[in-house]
Every structure is written in C-alpha cells, then in structure tokens.
Design a protein around this nucleic acid. Structure first.
Lengths: 251, 251
DNA sequence: CGCGCGCGATAACATGGGTTAAACCTTCAC
DNA sequence: GTGAAGGTTTAACCCATGTTATCGCGCGCG
C-alpha cells in the first residue's frame, strides 16, 4: 500500500477532477487544508446516518460505500455506489439534513471536511467550487441513468449498465486495469447488495449474473469482474458514457 | 395574467429560494441581470435537446416540462417533472453536454441565462451560487426518491408519492391551493406521460388512478387533482418531505 | 478436523404489471 | 351536428421477476 511517496488522501479526488478541468496548485492546497486526518470505517457501519444533520462532508479514500434509503417493511434501496475519490455527502453542506444514509460496503478509509471550512472555500475559490458543484451534478446524472435503467430496461440491461458504469468510474481513479490488458476490477459486493442497488431480488441477480457469464460477456467470481466483451456488454446496456463526464472541458 | 404589477420573470424562483434562505436585494438584481427576455415554447417541443451542448441555462417561468431520456426501442423515461421556478438545465453550465433532454409538457414560458453571465455570477456572488448549487442538489434528492419508489415501492405507492411531491412543489411556488381550503392543483398531463415518469404502462397508470380514486384518497379528473385525504395518501406513499428542503436553513 | 454460516445456484410456483384489443368519452374542426 | 383524433377505461391473457425452499461450496473458528 505504501511505496516511496504514499498517496495523499486527496490523490483519487484530484485525479478524477483533473480529468474534467485543470486543478491549480493553490486549489489542491485548499482541498488539503479542508480535510481532517483519515479514519477507518468497518464494513457494514454507517458513514453517515439517515436523517442526521452532518457538520462535515466526507471524502471516500478507499473502499466501497453506498447511499441508501430504508423502507418501513425493512427493504433497502441503494441509490448510488461510491468509489474512492467520491465526496459521499457533499450535498449535506447545503441540504443540512440527510435525506438518505451512507453505509460502508467494505472496510473503508475516509476523511472529513468541516462545513465551516468548506463554506470558506466557496467564498475564496469560485473555480474550485464549480468543480465540487460539478461532482454533485454528476451524482444527479448517475441517478438519472439508474432511473432510466430501472424504469425502462430489462433486468439484464440494468445489470450490464451498472457493470459498465463501475468499470469506467473505477478506471478513472486507477482502480481498474486498462482496456489493453484485460478490463478487470475488484467488486467485493454480495448479490444481495447488488439487488438492493438494482431494485431486484437476490435470486434474480443470481440468474442475471449467470446469464451474463453464459453469454461470455463477463467472467465474474470471487468479487473479481472481468469484462470479456465490452462491445457486447455496452450493447446490452445501451451504454453511453456522456453522463460520467470524463472529458476535459474547462468550467 | 397581469394585475397592477405583473409578476417578474424571477418571481417563482425567488419565492422558492426564499423558503430556504434569505435572498438579498443585490442577489435578486444579479439574477434579473443574468436572464434574457422570456419566450414561449409550444407543448410537445424540446426546450433542451438530448446530447446538445447548451450555451445558456433556462428557467421555467410557467407550465410543466420534463427531463427525459429516449431508448433505442422508442420508449421514453422521464426522470423529473419541472414546475415553474425550476432551472431546467442549470447543470449544463458545468456538465457542458446534456445527458438527457427537456420537453415542454404544456405550453411554457421560459427565460434563458447565458453561461458566460452565470459563470461571472459565481465569481461575484458566492452565497447566491450556493443557493443555485442547492437547487441542483435538490434535483438529485428528487431523483433518489424516485429511485426508491421505482425500486422498492408498489405501483400505487409510487403514484401516491408523485402526487405528494407535486403538491408540495407546486404549493411552494403558489400554484396549488392551501391545506385549509382544499388541496387542489392543476396537472394537465396525460396518463401516458405519467407512465413514462413512473416507469409503468398507461394501462397500469389508469388502473392505479382508478384505485386511488376508489379509496377516496384523491379526486382526479380533467387534469384537476384534489387530495381528499393527505394522511392516507402520505401513508400509502411512505412520504417524507425532507428531501424537498422547504425549510429555512441558511447556507 | 469438523462445524456453522454466509453466500450463491437452482427449482417450483405465485403475481404485479405488460400487452393487445376494443369500447367509450371528450374535444374540436368543419 | 358529425366525424376524426386523442385520451381513458376495461378485459383477457402473458411473462419477467418475486417468493420460498433446498442444496452446496468455501472459509473462519472452536
């Protein structure tokens, strides 16, 4: 995990933002200044509680987490999966009260940024503010794609779409191997968790994973996913990556 | 439509923002300065085209519009309904390319704000910027609630949730009659459109509307909706208004 | 070394919501 | 007043996905 120079706690965030627009040195400094020291969260623990009023926003440094809402009958709907480099509750800066919770799906490392410091950042760094704003806008775009998949795609298309999305988001922060050398990534989530994300039962998720495997589109076992045929997978998903905004276009 | 002093084009927007935090006079001026003169859009026309690269963001002044995505088989999924006072593509300011389209569901009046002016606004008015940012954050919160409804609620619960949401959003901008005096609002949308929003077929929407009516929870005909039993309706929907953020909490 | 448990696969059966079709109603143009 | 067009309702039938249940595998722990 540590080489000559250990990755700073904002490496993945800056890596992601830099894909979209240049991040100036003083902006990187400002981001560092705003964050408290990293801390660890155990798999299964809430990082942010439903209905709470956070006084800081939290950056996911490593691991997977998920936004979720609980229902009266005990069911759960996951509304977004978070990957390293995601600000998991930046919206609480302005929303004040959480409309959902965030749970660690694996052991995670996170760092918090006090709201007071973030507000000061928005007063002094309008361009960096726009980059952070953009990050929350992309959350909304991801939600919309999930809505389309849930409302109008088949279960298989929906699962395929999720796999495409996760691959590109993980690749953007160096957590997936490149196209040349086998499109592989670690996805240590249970099928029950995937079902909560897709709005499907665990039985049906199992059927769908088996089907994708059977078609020779992915190999998937032990939490390791390899995309064997991106073209086919994207076709099944009707995938269009625009919404992830991994293009450099200055804001 | 016009009385002594005709409502300015930003009345509904300012009304909505003011519910959340005080909007200063110079901020209201800044908003006015940023907007081009209003223009009319015919029902059924695109206000913003899918995949376009807008150079301005558009405010909905009157009428209903919808964000939507089209699928290969001709199906459509609506991901949000817009009411007067909504900035319908504010995210394009930073997203650059549209990941979806916006269509007028009724005749609409809109006003556009050039991106160059909006960027200048973010440089000069950090607090107003946060209010606009918050508006896009609430879009994301609405998306999440729709995801929960689509993934884990019954069709009836989902429809009931949509009715609750629309009532509160319309009431916030003075487009629905108050609780004391009959909770009524105009909703001139076809059941096919509602189906595209709910991810259901028009036949099933008809069954569900009939069921809500039969339970005596709403009266609904000719595009007029009246909520006869808010308590029952909110119960069916498991509705919690937190996500609409209609509380005054300074940002 | 073996037991228990979480996870995934499979099977049998149930059902909410889709599809197709037809009847009916309302509005509006002429 | 009549016909056409668009919207809603109802009915019959179908299928994707849910539910319940069982089995098997792999791994951690006693």
């Amino acid at each position: 995990m540590t080489t000559v120079s250990p990755p700073s706690r904002i490496t993945t965030l800056v890596e992601k933002l830099s894909l979209r627009d240049q991040v100036a040195p003083d902006e990187i400094e400002a981001l560092k200044d705003v964050l408290d020291p990293p801390r660890e969260i155990r798999s299964g623990a809430d990082i942010v509680k439903e209905h709470s009023h956070p006084l800081h926003s939290t950056l996911l440094i490593s691991g997977f987490s998920a936004r979720y809402s609980s229902l009266a009958d005990g069911a759960r709907q996951i509304t977004e999966l978070n990957v390293p480099g995601d600000f998991i509750d930046l919206h609480s800066l302005l929303m004040k009260q959480m409309d959902h919770g965030v749970v660690a799906l694996t052991d995670c490392v996170v760092a918090s940024a006090p709201h007071a410091k973030l507000i000061r950042l928005t007063e002094r760094h309008p361009h960096l503010t726009r980059l952070l704003w953009l990050d929350t806008i992309i959350d909304a775009a991801i939600h919309r794609q999930w809505l389309v998949a849930m409302g109008r795609r088949s279960g298989l298309g929906h699962l395929a779409h999720l796999v495409c999305e996760l691959y590109l988001r993980l690749q953007a922060v160096g957590q997936a191997s490149g196209k040349a050398d086998g499109m592989r990534f670690n996805l240590p989530l249970t099928q029950a968790t995937l079902g909560d994300a897709l709005g499907l039962s665990t039985v049906h998720v199992s059927r769908l994973v088996t089907e994708l495997r059977g078609e020779g589109v992915v190999s998937w076992s032990g939490g390791q996913v390899e995309i064997l045929n991106w073209h086919r997978l994207a076709e099944i998903a009707e995938f269009d990556a625009t919404y992830l905004r991994l293009q450099n276009e200055p804001v």
